[in-house]
Design a protein around this nucleic acid. Structure first.
Length: 287
DNA sequence: CGTACGACCTGCCCGC
DNA sequence: TGCGGGCAGGTCGTAC
């Protein structure tokens, strides 16, 4: 599922339902995720009130009253399902199919208000871990992340400095979470299209004009995607049981051989695999 | 040190 | 209809 916009949509929905609610019980159906759910998980989480739900990069941070925080990552196929006792499923995210298989319900949280939150993840690239809130600043996953791309954290001077310092391609760099946190394959492709930069351009060769456009494009693409509820591909449904709509505005992602959508450009969208990921770009207007 | 690549998983889709 | 190969929104450990 998830890059920054999808994770943020998920976070906001979770927050709405579980903030200030108490976890009455937990069922761990299958602890095997990318990392095994720790043995002390159930003990430290049961009975706790949810204080707040934050996001850092693609991680969802669920703060508990007892100085613990659940750190969740959705990997490629992780999603939440929220149910209550009165109605059918009223919140659902799904990836490969509309009805995701309960076979992959790894974790179930039972709340004080007849609310149940399920974490489902067929591919098991996601995880649920626990850390002390007071130790988050040295957390293995969080401490190495680059700046958030939304808001004012990401400075143009930082982009100038960092792009100059490497011979990697700009797309690889954009997807490197230590450089900027939260951008994945779809949004890297879309950002580079808007910035008119080829995905395989060597970072150090970007001009100041390139970097200026890149800086603007990062914010524009991610904000627009967030506004539209993220991207829904392969039947993914966003966190309110509705599909995201940003996929309707894809300019390059999954558009191989189709016409470039830039005004007055007659190019076609190319697909090239590099470093194991598919890059989509217009051969004519991205340089 | 920085960088590239295979590995980790399941499920869907397409072509034979 | 069945099967095999390729593909998928991520990231880490390992080998150069």
């Amino acid at each position: 599922m998830p890059e920054l916009p999808e994770v943020e949509v998920t976070r906001r929905t979770l927050l709405k339902f579980i903030e200030n609610k108490v976890i009455k019980n937990i069922k761990i159906n299958n602890p095997n995720l990318r990392f095994k759910i720790p043995a002390n998980f159930k003990k430290n989480v049961t009975g706790q009130k949810i204080i707040k739900v934050l996001r850092r990069s693609k991680y969802i941070l669920i703060y508990l009253k007892n100085d613990y925080v659940m750190i969740a990552h959705l990997g490629m196929s992780g999603k939440f399902l929220i149910k209550n006792n009165y109605s059918k499923d009223f919140l659902k995210t799904s990836y490969y199919s509309n009805e995701f298989s309960s076979k992959h319900n790894h974790l179930e949280f039972f709340f004080s208000n007849n609310l149940k939150v399920i974490y489902n993840d067929p591919r098991r690239f996601g995880f649920f871990l626990l850390d002390k809130i007071s130790k988050l600043d040295v957390n293995k996953f969080l401490s190495k992340l680059g700046p958030e791309p939304l808001g004012k954290d990401l400075k143009k001077d930082y982009l100038i400095l960092k792009t100059k310092a490497t011979q990697r391609t700009i797309k690889t760099l954009l997807m490197d979470q230590r450089f900027i946190s939260g951008i994945g394959n779809i949004y890297a492709n879309e950002i580079l299209f808007l910035a008119k930069i080829r995905p395989n351009k060597i970072s150090s060769k970007l001009s100041l004009v390139d970097i200026g456009r890149l800086h603007l494009s990062i914010g524009k693409v991610l904000k627009r995607a967030l506004k539209l509820g993220g991207s829904s591909i392969k039947d993914f449904k966003s966190s309110v049981g509705e599909k995201g709509r940003f996929q309707n505005e894809f300019k390059v992602y999954d558009r191989e051989d189709l016409k470039c959508l830039r005004t007055r450009c007659s190019g076609l969208i190319a697909r090239v695999v590099s470093q194991g990921r598919a890059s989509f770009f217009c051969n004519e207007c991205q340089n």
